[in-house]
Design a protein around this nucleic acid. Structure first.
Length: 712
DNA sequence: GACCTGCTGCGGACTG
C-alpha cells in the first residue's frame, strides 16, 4: 500500500519506523488515492485515523493550485491544538504550512496565512461562520480552491443543530469553487450511516470504511444503595480501593456529582496518606486548570491519578494511558458509553477495563441494558431534521450580512442551492423571511433585504456565530485566580460553601455587577447546584431493560450485591409475565394506586405525560423508572390510556397555546424563538416529543396485570 | 434526571 504514497510521505513512514500500517490506514490509502469519492473513516480511538486521512491526502494534493489545500474542521479547540503538532510534523516533509484558525489562535499566524494562502488550516465551524459573515473576501482568498475538507469526530455533528450549520457552511464554501472538494470524515462511532454520508453533501458519492475489530474488555458491576442525596460512604471506600493505584477516569454523569466524588476521594486519600492526584474536569472549571489536568494525565508516566469528569473527557484529545474507566450510574446513551470505554487500554494489546457502580435498582438495570446493547453493537440512530427552520433563519441572517444585502429572490436562490435545506419549500422560506422583516431582524429597502434595526444587535454580537445557547454565569475567584464559572442562581450566599475543582470553598463576597464570586478554601461543603434539562433515553434501552427484567439470565459481571438487587427487582415484576417485549407492559396495582410502566424512551414518555395533562388526568410521571403513577384502579387506568389515543387531534392547538403562554418552552433552540409559532410547533414536536410513535405504542400496547391476584 | 461545544472588531491601556 505504501507504494501508492508520494516519496516524502514514504520517507515520513520510514523515519517513524512503523513496522506495519494499521488496517484502517491501508484501506484509507487505497480509497483516497485510487478514487475521487468522499470517505468516512470509522475505527476505534487511537487507531491512527488522522494519519489514515493525511498520508494519502498529502500524497494526492496538487501543489500547483493556489490557496489552502486542506481544511480540517474540528468540534473542539482543544482537539485542534492537539492535532496541530501531529499534522505539522507530517507537513514538514512537504514544506507545507499548517495554520490554526480559531478564536484563541494567534492573530499573527492568521495574518501570515492571508499574505500567503497555502497548506493546511485547522478550524472550527464557528470560525468559518465568522469569516463568512465578517470577511467574505478572506474566505474566498483562502478557501476557493480547497482540495480536501476533513471533518474530525464527525459523529458529534450528526443529528445536531451544529451539524446542520456545518452542512450549510460547507455548501456556502463550495459556492466559491469551480471544482469540487472531497470530504473525509473521521469517527470512532458511527450510529447513523446514512445521515453521516448526507453531511458531506453527496451521500451517493461517499464511501464508509469501517474497522470493527473489537477491543477486549473486562466489566464488573457493583451495587451500593443510595439513601439520601449523597453517595454512600461504602461506595466511596470501595471506589477508593479500586482507583488508588491506577490511572482512572470516573464518569458520574453530572458536574455536581463529579465534584462530590473527587472531594470525597481526596479526603479518604489524605487520611490514608495516599497520593493527591484527584481532579475534577468539567465545563464549569476554568480552562487553564482543565488544560493543566489534561497535560498532567498525558505527560505523567509514573503516578496514578483519578479524574472525575463529565463528557468533557469523552471526545477529543488523547489523554494517554488510562487503565480503568468507572461509570457511576447509567450513562445516558450507548454512543457515550462507547466513547468512555474507548478512553482506557488504548495501547495495542491492552484490555479496556470498565466498572459500573449503581446506586439504585433502576440504574443497575439501565446500566446492564446499555452494556448488553453495546455488545450487540447497537448505537442510537440519530435522525437529522429535514426541516431545520431555526438553522435556516440563522443562515439567512448570516447570508444577508455576508453579502451586504440581497433581493428575496437572490436569498432564496442561495438557500435552494444549499443542501442543508433541500427539503424546505419556497413558501416556507417566504414565511421565515417575512417573520424576520416583521421582527426588524431584516429590512426590505428598494427591493433588497438588508440587516434590520434589531438585526444589527443580533449579527454584530459575538454570540451570533454559534447555534447553541450559552447561559450567563459567575466567575469564581480565589486570590485573583479564576477557578471556574458557575451558572447564575439566587442560591449563592455569603459564608456558604461550594465544591469546585475538587476543593471546598467558602463564599466571601459576591459582586453581582461584575458577576464575580470571591472565595477562600474551606473544610466542609455541599455540591454546587447545576440546572439541566434532563437526559433523553432511547426507547431501545428501555425495551432491553424490560427484556432483562423478564428473563432469567444470570450475568457473570454482577457482584453479589448487584445480583441480589436484580433478583429483588425481578421478584417485584414476577407476577406480571411478559412474553412480548415489544407490546406488553406491566400495570401494577398497589393499594389505591396503579403504576403503569411504559418502558419507553423519554420522548414518548413526555408525550404520554402531555396527553394525560391535556385530558386533565393527574399521574405522577417518573422517567427514571419510566413509570406513571395513577390514583385509580387498573380498569380505570386502562380506559384512560386507551382514550389518550383519541385525543391526539387536539395536540397542535394545545402545544400552540403552551408556546403562547410560556415562550421559555422554546429556549432549547437558540434561533427557534424568532420563528413563527407554526414552525416553533414543528421543531418542538420533533425535538422534545414523539407523538407518532406514542400513538403507535398506545394502540398496540397490551396491559399485563398481576397473575396470582395476591398483589393488592 | 444531563452533558458539551464556540466567538468579531474596535478602542484604549499597557508592556517591552
Amino acid at each position: 500500500m505504501i507504494e501508492l504514497l508520494s516519496e516524502p510521505i514514504r520517507r515520513y513512514i520510514r523515519d517513524k519506523r512503523w513496522e506495519e500500517l494499521r488496517a484502517i490506514q491501508k484501506h484509507a490509502i487505497k480509497h483516497i488515492m485510487e478514487s475521487e469519492k468522499n470517505v468516512i473513516l470509522s475505527s476505534r480511538t487511537a487507531s491512527g485515523k488522522t494519519e489514515a486521512a493525511f498520508l494519502p491526502m498529502l500524497s494526492k494534493i496538487d501543489f500547483n493550485k493556489p490557496g489552502v489545500k486542506i481544511l480540517y474542521i474540528s468540534p473542539l479547540i482543544a482537539l485542534i491544538n492537539d492535532q496541530f503538532n501531529r499534522v505539522e510534523e507530517l507537513c514538514e516533509y512537504l514544506d507545507l504550512p499548517v495554520t490554526k484558525w480559531h478564536g484563541e489562535a494567534k492573530k499573527s499566524a492568521k495574518e501570515n496565512l492571508l499574505k500567503n494562502p497555502d497548506g493546511v488550516v485547522l478550524i472550527t465551524p464557528e470560525s468559518i461562520e465568522a469569516m463568512l459573515v465578517n470577511k467574505e473576501q478572506n474566505a474566498i482568498k483562502l478557501f476557493s480552491s480547497l482540495q480536501f475538507v476533513v471533518i474530525d469526530e464527525i459523529h458529534s455533528f450528526i443529528g445536531t443543530d451544529r451539524g446542520m450549520q456545518l452542512a450549510s457552511l460547507l455548501s456556502r464554501l463550495s459556492s466559491f469553487h469551480t471544482s469540487k472538494f472531497r470530504v473525509i470524515g473521521l469517527s470512532a462511532t458511527i450510529g447513523a450511516i446514512a445521515e453521516t454520508k448526507k453531511l458531506t453533501g453527496d451521500a451517493e458519492g461517499t464511501t464508509l470504511l469501517r474497522d470493527k475489530a473489537p477491543k477486549e474488555m473486562e466489566v464488573s458491576f457493583r451495587y451500593f444503595k443510595m439513601e439520601g442525596a449523597e453517595l454512600p460512604i461504602e461506595l466511596m471506600k470501595d471506589l477508593y480501593l479500586e482507583v488508588k493505584d491506577n490511572k482512572v477516569l470516573i464518569f458520574p454523569n453530572s458536574r455536581g456529582r463529579a465534584e462530590e466524588v473527587s472531594v470525597k476521594l481526596k479526603k479518604i486519600s489524605d487520611r490514608l496518606k495516599g497520593h493527591s492526584y484527584y481532579f475534577s474536569h468539567h465545563s464549569s472549571i476554568d480552562r487553564e486548570l482543565r488544560e493543566y489536568i489534561e497535560q498532567f494525565a498525558k505527560n505523567n508516566k509514573r503516578y496514578p491519578f483519578s479524574i472525575s469528569c463529565t463528557s468533557t473527557l469523552e471526545l477529543g484529545i488523547d489523554i494517554g494511558s488510562v487503565e480503568k474507566v468507572v461509570q457511576i450510574d447509567a450513562a445516558h446513551s450507548i454512543s457515550s458509553l462507547i466513547q468512555r470505554v474507548g478512553r482506557s487500554g488504548r495501547r495495542e494489546g491492552e484490555k479496556s477495563s470498565l466498572i459500573f457502580y449503581a446506586t439504585d435498582q433502576w440504574n443497575l438495570l439501565q446500566s446492564l441494558a446499555c452494556l448488553l446493547l453495546f455488545r450487540d453493537e447497537f448505537i442510537e440512530p440519530v435522525l437529522a431534521s429535514e426541516k431545520p427552520y431555526d438553522i435556516l433563519l440563522h443562515q439567512m441572517l448570516s447570508i444577508i450580512k455576508q453579502t451586504n444585502g440581497r433581493t428575496p429572490q437572490q436569498l432564496k436562490k442561495h438557500i435552494k442551492e444549499n443542501y442543508a435545506f433541500e427539503h424546505i419549500q419556497e413558501a416556507e422560506m417566504d414565511d421565515v423571511i417575512q417573520t424576520l422583516v416583521e421582527k426588524e431582524q431584516l429590512e426590505l429597502i428598494g427591493g433588497e433585504l438588508i440587516v434590520g434595526v434589531e438585526g444589527e444587535w443580533t449579527v454584530n454580537n459575538k454570540d451570533f456565530y454559534s447555534v447553541f445557547r450559552s447561559d450567563p454565569s459567575f466567575k469564581i475567584i480565589h486570590h485573583d485566580k479564576t477557578i471556574g464559572e458557575l451558572p447564575l442562581m439566587s442560591a449563592f450566599q455569603i459564608d456558604e460553601n461550594i465544591l469546585l475543582a475538587a476543593r471546598i470553598w467558602k463564599i466571601l463576597e459576591i459582586d453581582y455587577k461584575a458577576k464575580k464570586i470571591f472565595v477562600i478554601p474551606a473544610k466542609d461543603g455541599k455540591k454546587p447546584m447545576f440546572f439541566g434539562t434532563g437526559g433523553e433515553v432511547h426507547p431501545k434501552i428501555r425495551e432491553k431493560m424490560l427484556d432483562v427484567l423478564s428473563c432469567q439470565q444470570e450475568y457473570q459481571e454482577l457482584n453479589e450485591e448487584a445480583a441480589e438487587a436484580l433478583r429483588l427487582l425481578r421478584l417485584d415484576f414476577k407476577c406480571y409475565p411478559i412474553t412480548e417485549i415489544a407490546t406488553q407492559r406491566p400495570l401494577v396495582a398497589k393499594h389505591a394506586e396503579t403504576i403503569f410502566y411504559s418502558f419507553q424512551g423519554t420522548k414518548i414518555n413526555k408525550s404520554i405525560d402531555f396527553l394525560l395533562r391535556l385530558q386533565g388526568i393527574t399521574a405522577d410521571y417518573n422517567d427514571h423508572e419510566s413509570s406513571f403513577n395513577f390514583k385509580a384502579n387498573p380498569a380505570e387506568v386502562k380506559a384512560m390510556l386507551k382514550k389518550l389515543k383519541a385525543s391526539t387531534e387536539h395536540i397542535d392547538s394545545a402545544l400552540i397555546s403552551m408556546l403562547e403562554s410560556n415562550p421559555a418552552v422554546m429556549e432549547f433552540s437558540k434561533w427557534g424563538t424568532l420563528l413563527p409559532l407554526q414552525y416553533q410547533l414543528i421543531i418542538l414536536k420533533l425535538k422534545i416529543y414523539d407523538f407518532t410513535h406514542t400513538e403507535i405504542f398506545l394502540s398496540t400496547c397490551e396491559f399485563v396485570e398481576a397473575q396470582d391476584g395476591s398483589k393488592d
